[in-house]
Nucleic acid binder design. Sequence first.
DNA 1: CAGTGGTCTAGACCACCGA
DNA 2: CGGTGGTCTAGACCACTGG
Lengths: 240, 240
Amino acid sequence: MTSTLLTRALPAYEQVKAFIKQQITTGVWRPGDNVPSEAALQQQFGVSRMTVNRAVKELAVEGVVSRVQGSGTVVAQLHRISSTLEIRDIHDEILARGHSHSTQVLKVESLRAPAELARTLKLHTGAKVFHSVLVHYEDGVAIQLEDRHVNPAAVPDYLQADFAATTPTRYLLEHAPLTEASYSIEATLASAHEAKCLGLKRGEPCLVMTRSTVSGPHVASLVRLVYPGMRYSFGGKFQL
Amino acid sequence: MTSTLLTRALPAYEQVKAFIKQQITTGVWRPGDNVPSEAALQQQFGVSRMTVNRAVKELAVEGVVSRVQGSGTVVAQLHRISSTLEIRDIHDEILARGHSHSTQVLKVESLRAPAELARTLKLHTGAKVFHSVLVHYEDGVAIQLEDRHVNPAAVPDYLQADFAATTPTRYLLEHAPLTEASYSIEATLASAHEAKCLGLKRGEPCLVMTRSTVSGPHVASLVRLVYPGMRYSFGGKFQL
DNA sequence: CAGTGGTCTAGACCACCGA
DNA sequence: CGGTGGTCTAGACCACTGG
C-alpha cells in the first residue's frame, strides 16, 4: 500500500521518522524487532531511497534504532535516556534566565605547580601556572565558586584579562580554541573556605564539577566549579 | 584549487568535516567567522553538493557551526561543551564496569497519592499509585537508593514483577514504551532514613537525580535516585 | 534580485551479512 | 548468492536572506 504524502507541512524524511517512532511508542514494534528495509519503506512512502536512508540514519544517531550493514535495522534494545548536557558560559546562562550576573575576583596570580596539578596539565612539577579564583552571583546571590588553573603555554596573556568584564570561560574560548574537554560531577560538603566564599554554612552540600580542557597540543585549563546544592541543579530532557 | 581526495580511507563527507574542524581548532576560523558556502566547498573538494551538505549539516547538529537558510554558515559562537549524558539501567552499568550487581528490595506496595505526587503523575489526589524502594549494590557496596512511584494506568502489573531478577528500570522499559523523560541532578544531605539504607553517616553529601518518564498518554513513573556523593560521579567527555 | 541552505530524485557502486 | 545498508552523483525545485 503506497500511502501518499498529502501533508506537505512536514518534509518527507520527517514523516518517515514519525511513522517509525510511532510504531515504537505505541508498542507495535518492540525492542529487538526488525524495522522494514530501506527498499520496503521506499515502496511504502513512495519516496527515493536517499530520503528513507536519511530518516533511518538519523534515528540510528539518536539511538532509537540500531543498524548493521548487511544485516538490517532493529529497534534499539535499551532506550538510553540520552540528553545533551550543555556546559555554557555562566554569564550567558544567567542572562538567559533573565537575571543579572556579577563577579567578584578573589585571586589572580602565578604560582609553581605542585606535583598533581603539574601532572594533570602535563607540565613539570614546579612549572609556572596561572591561577584565578572568582565568585559568580546571580541577582546578587552567590551561585558558583570558580577555582581555575591555566597553562601559560596555551594562554600566555591570561593574567592580563579583566575578569570583571569577561569571564575566564569566555576568555579561554576566545584565546585557546577548544578541541577537547572532559568533566565529572559529584556531591561534596563545602569546605570552610568554600562555604565562606559562597555564603554557606560549613557542611552544606555542594555540586562540584571538575573539568579539564585541551586546546591543540596543550592541556589548557583545569577548573573546579562549586555550586551550592540548594541553589543549583543540572537538568535535561529526552524525547523520542 | 581542487584538492583531490587521495585518501580513500575516509568517506568524502568525513574529509570535508575534518577540514572544517581543523580550520576551527587551529584558530584559522574563529567563532563568528563565515564558513565557505556549499558551492565553494563543492568546488574545493570536487564532490557533489549533497556530500558537502551532509558534512556541514552534521557539524551543525553537533553544534560546531550554525546555519541560517538564506544567510549562510558561521562558526558557532560558544563551543558549548555538549556531551550526551546517558542514563542506563544500573544493572547494565555496573556489569559494564566488570563488577557484580545485587539488589535489596525494601518495599513494594500500593498507596493513595498525596497531592503533590498526584499532580506530577497527572492523577487525582488519593488515586492508587504503586511504590517501590530498592537499594542497589556494586560489589556489595550500596551505591544507589531507588525510590519509585508508578502510575497503575501505564503499568498495571508493576507490583507482580520480581525486582530481584529484573530492575524496575528494565521492567518499565519493557512494559511501558518510553516516549519522553526529564531529569534534574542536585546535591543534598542524606536524610536519616536514606543514610541508613545506604550505610552512610547522617549529613553525608549525596547526588540526587529526580526523573519522570512519559509513556504514551501517561506519566508513567517518578523516581528519586540517591547516590552516595563519595562513591559516585557522573562524567562525560566532549571532542570537537 | 542573486546567493544561500533545505529538501528531494533516480539512478549508481560498494562492503558486508547470512544462507 | 541475494539482500542489506553506506556512500556518492548530477541534477532539480523551493524558501529564505540580504542588499
